[in-house]
Structures are given as C-alpha cells and as structure tokens.
C-alpha cells in the first residue's frame, strides 16, 4: 500500500517537470521584446532597461532558467511589477475564491449528476433514460461562460433574485457569499453535470450485468436498494475518475466564469495578466494552478485504493 502511494507520488515528478518547463519556456516564445512591452508605450530607454534588469532579462536563457527554478524550489515565483506584489502572494490571495467556486460547482454537479446517471441506468432505454441523457448531452455542449451570462440575464436582470456579479467573502457574510457564488457555481455545475451523469450511467450498466447484482436481486432486495447500494459501489471507480477529470475541467471553467461574474479569483488574475502581458504572473499562475490540478488527480488516484480493495491487493 505504502509502496503504491510512493509510486504514484514519483509518477507526478516528470509531470511537474514538463509543466514547469512549459511554464518557464513561454517567455522564450514571446516574439517581441518583453521588457519594452511591459514598460509600456510611453517608457524611456532607461525605464525599459530598468524593467529588463528587474526581470533578469539581460541574462542568457539558461541562467534565467536556473534562477527561475531556484526561486520555484524556494517557493518564490517572482514579482509582478504591475501589481507590486509577489506572484505567490497574488495567486494564494485569490485561490480561495477559485477553489470554492470549483468545489461548489463540482459538488452540485455530483449531487445531481450521479443520481441522474443511476436513474438513467435503472430505466435504461426508457423515457427517463432518454430525457436525462438528452439533458446531459445538451449541458456538456453549452459554453459555460455563455450559460453564466444567460443566468445573469434571467436571475439578475429579469427576476432580480441574485446579484449579477461581485464577490462577498464567507468570513463577513455567509448568506451573501452563497448568493454571490450561486450563479457562477450553477453555470459551472450545469456544464459539468453531463459527463458525470453519462459516466455514472455507463459504469452502472456495466456493473448491473455482474453476478453479484443478480445475487442481490435474488436475495430479494428492492430495485432501488440494488442500485443505490450495490451498483453504485461497483461503479465508484469510473465515477471517481470522471469527477477527477471533472475537477480539471471545472477549474478551467471557473477561471473563465470568474471573468463573467467579476469574481476576484485566479482566473481574473491570470487573464488580466495575459491582457497586460505581466509575464511573472502568467508563468506563476499557470504553474500553481496546474500543480493543484496534479495534486487533486493524485488524491483521486489514492482514493481509488480506498474505494476499491481489489486495487490494494494487486499492488
């Protein structure tokens, strides 16, 4: 068991190496001169030189790379000149907003998607199946940022039920926080529902054909109990997989949805940095967000072992 955990952890090392190489390499791909771009159109030659020195751009790429990695290992991702803040602090400050949005969206998607998938499997090829699967398909085809605007229009502009944007911290006002995050999380959840419901259904159908399900039926369990207890347990690994993948998608979606609802999260930070060409923030944001994603996937991998004892034994 411990050996397996260590193996999974080691497997993440090359992934993180590639991720960090790409994050660093981005600046080498920029066609123009980064320093003059960041200094702005009105900057004098000495301003540009100062920015160049501050970013260490007057050194050869290999030296810059060594310095960047040196910083990353010490937890220093550089400084944003435009925000006058260290990149690490800027990202960490905004991370709770993004993560709470991602988790809320994903949680709602699971709470609706898993039962819907089970229902579809229990009533396979009949109307409840067709309705839920049709809905799932529609949901995963809608752009989440557009869905956000649609929700703003319906619930904010037309009905005046919920705020159309802005963020309230849960530490000051829990109800206000829920209201501020309801629409963003809702639009994320609606697009995440589809894959979860579809995967639950196909996994449940596969499990439903097994011998132990026949046994469960034969000993007289009701159909509802067979599905909620035995089929669900058997289908847990594929469902977890899709929730893990869903986390990555939801995280990516959250970054954009933040933009729609003006939530002060990592997405707005990075997209703002992209538009202002604030390279240290782009690199650091990309690296940190992806590390979180990798860690979550690692967590999901370890959850498999907990959910499915067979995997533990095979190690």
């Amino acid at each position: 068991m411990l050996r397996l955990v260590i193996m999974r952890l080691l497997a993440a090392v090359p992934v993180l190496l590639v991720v960090s190489l790409v994050s660093f390499g981005l600046t080498l791909l920029v066609p123009g001169d980064i320093a003059s771009e960041m200094a702005g159109p009105t900057a004098t030659a000495s301003d540009v030189a100062r920015v160049r020195a501050e970013l260490g751009l007057n050194q050869p790429p290999l030296v810059r790379m060594a310095q960047w990695y040196g910083g990353v290992i010490r937890g220093d991702l550089g400084r944003s000149i435009l925000l006058n803040q260290s990149v690490g602090a800027a990202v960490l400050e905004r991370l709770p907003v993004t993560l709470s949005l991602t988790f809320m969206g994903l949680a709602v998607a699971c709470l609706i998607g898993v039962p819907a998938g089970l229902l579809a499997a229990a009533k396979a090829r009949r109307w409840p199946d067709q309705v839920t699967m049709g809905g799932a398909m529609l949901g995963l085809s809608l752009p989440d940022f557009w869905l956000g605007l649609l929700l703003i229009w319906i619930f904010g502009v037309q009905l005046h039920w919920l705020p159309t944007g802005g963020f309230v911290s849960p530490s000051t006002d829990v109800l206000g926080w829920l209201r501020s995050i309801a629409l963003p999380a809702g639009s994320l959840a609606l697009t995440q529902l589809g894959p979860i419901a579809r995967m639950t259904r196909s996994a449940a159908l596969e499990v439903a054909g097994s011998d132990f399900i026949r046994t469960a039926r034969a000993k007289g369990l009701t159909e509802g109990r067979v599905f909620t207890r035995h089929v669900l347990a058997g289908a847990m690994v594929p469902i977890l997989t899709v929730v893990g993948i869903g986390f990555g998608l939801a995280l990516g979606g959250a970054l954009v949805v933040e933009q729609v609802f003006s939530l002060p999260g990592v997405g707005r930070l990075v997209i703002g940095a992209v538009l202002r060409r604030d390279w240290p923030v782009i690199q650091g944001g990309l690296l940190l967000t992806t590390c979180i994603f990798v860690l979550v996937n690692l967590g999901v991998d370890l959850l498999y072992l907990w959910v499915d004892p067979r995997l533990r034994e095979s190690s």
Partner: peptide
C-alpha cells in the same frame, strides 16, 4: 505533462 494543464 501537457495533459496536466487545464487545457483552457
């Protein structure tokens, strides 16, 4: 490594 990034 490339798949580890959120694609968007």
């Amino acid at each position: 490594g490339l798949m580890a990034f959120p694609g968007l």
